[in-house]
Amino acid sequence: MIATLKRIWKQGTPTTTSPHDAELAVTALMVEVMRMDDKLEDAEHQRIISNLQKRFALTPAEITPLIERARRTSARALDMHQFTSVIVKSFTTGERVHILAELWQVAMADGEIDPYEEQLIRRIAELFGLDHRQFIEAKLEAAAS
């Protein structure tokens, strides 16, 4: 772990983000929500695919490797900040509320919201710089869709 921290310190933080970084960051957060309840439901996986198609206009051939890359990246992640910071730099506040709604959609896809999923989404909302009203707005938007 110390070696990883030293490597990160030497590399520094990139000052710009590419659209591909944003795609990976959003996908990684969706994968984390899906994995949070320790049940890898097909409905949640399909919701991730649907959300990525709508948000980034990706084809199924592009989505499958992106999800696999996001799984590997999130498994190695020390925390959510590396993903949320990219999203904060890449998207407006309104867009971040919609991304949070998409995370809620993943959590709701299997018919129930696990408390751990809700806790993770609440933490992501904080890291997005969103307030409680926006957190609830995103949840209601997801429930209505």
Rank of each mutant, 00 (worst) to 15 (best):
V106C: 05
A101Q: 05
D79R: 10
D110M: 11
E137N: 06
L66P: 03
R35N: 11
P19N: 09
L29Q: 05
R133P: 12
T15R: 15
F128M: 00
I48T: 08
P65N: 09
T17P: 03
R76S: 12
I99V: 06
R72Y: 14
R35H: 04
I121H: 04
Q82L: 12
V31R: 02
E141T: 13
M30L: 08
T64Y: 10
M36F: 08
A144V: 08
A125G: 12
D37K: 14
D38H: 15
A70I: 03
L103S: 06
E126C: 09
L52E: 08
V26P: 02
L103W: 15
E126R: 11
L40W: 10
T4A: 09
E102G: 06
R71M: 02
P115N: 07
Q105K: 08
F56S: 13
Q119F: 06
H81Y: 15
D37V: 03
L29T: 03
R133I: 14
K10H: 14
E41S: 10
F128H: 02
E23G: 11
A28L: 00
N51L: 03
R47P: 05
R69P: 04
H132R: 08
L58I: 10
R71S: 01
H45Y: 11
F128L: 03
T93A: 13
A25F: 01
R72M: 09
